[in-house]
Amino acid sequence: MSHKKHVCETRVRVRYAETDQMGVVYHANYLVWFEVGRVEFIRQLGLDYKSMEQDDGCGIAVVQVEARYRAPARYDDELVIETRLVAARGPVVRFGYRILRAKDGALLCEGESGHVVVGKDMKRAKLPQRYAERFAECLI
């Protein structure tokens, strides 16, 4: 697989509870889907958040999120979450996202999230070596 172009695709279906009075997806749900994509991206690399937290004693805290809404998603739409690694330097990691409607490929939302690796004390920590190595491969 070409790591530079590595994009994880995850599919979700819009639930009724995720829509607002206007029948469109409430904007904050896109941030939840960013997280779904991020977790699956890491899983596709053979890694996972759970072991990072339990075995390595650290996590990746969200410190910044940006989202640009292009078109509405509606109840029962199948969505494709495209996730890619944008940067990984020291304790700082950035992911990029695109959310598309599966049936027509329409771009609904795109954005990025910035993270800092932290220990259980919530202070900056070093990214565990195996994560640093796998992330570096995605950026080559």
Results as ranks from 00 to 15, higher is better:
1 M>A: 08
1 M>K: 01
3 H>T: 04
4 K>W: 03
4 K>D: 11
8 C>A: 14
10 T>F: 08
10 T>M: 03
11 R>L: 09
12 V>I: 15
12 V>K: 01
12 V>L: 14
14 V>E: 11
14 V>R: 03
16 Y>N: 05
17 A>C: 12
20 D>C: 06
25 V>A: 00
25 V>C: 02
25 V>Q: 01
27 H>S: 13
28 A>W: 02
30 Y>P: 00
31 L>M: 09
34 F>G: 00
35 E>Y: 02
36 V>I: 12
37 G>R: 01
38 R>M: 00
41 F>M: 05
41 F>L: 12
41 F>T: 11
42 I>F: 04
43 R>Q: 08
46 G>V: 08
47 L>E: 10
47 L>R: 12
48 D>G: 14
49 Y>F: 12
50 K>G: 08
51 S>A: 12
57 G>I: 13
59 G>Q: 03
60 I>W: 06
61 A>W: 09
64 Q>N: 11
64 Q>M: 11
64 Q>P: 00
65 V>A: 15
66 E>A: 13
68 R>E: 15
68 R>L: 07
72 P>F: 10
72 P>C: 03
72 P>N: 12
73 A>V: 04
73 A>D: 09
77 D>Q: 07
77 D>L: 11
79 L>M: 14
79 L>E: 10
87 A>G: 05
87 A>C: 05
88 A>G: 05
91 P>M: 12
91 P>I: 10
92 V>L: 09
92 V>S: 10
92 V>D: 05
103 K>D: 15
103 K>E: 15
103 K>C: 14
106 A>S: 07
106 A>D: 08
107 L>G: 07
110 E>N: 13
112 E>S: 14
117 V>F: 07
126 K>E: 14
132 A>I: 06
133 E>Q: 13
133 E>A: 14
135 F>K: 05
137 E>Y: 02
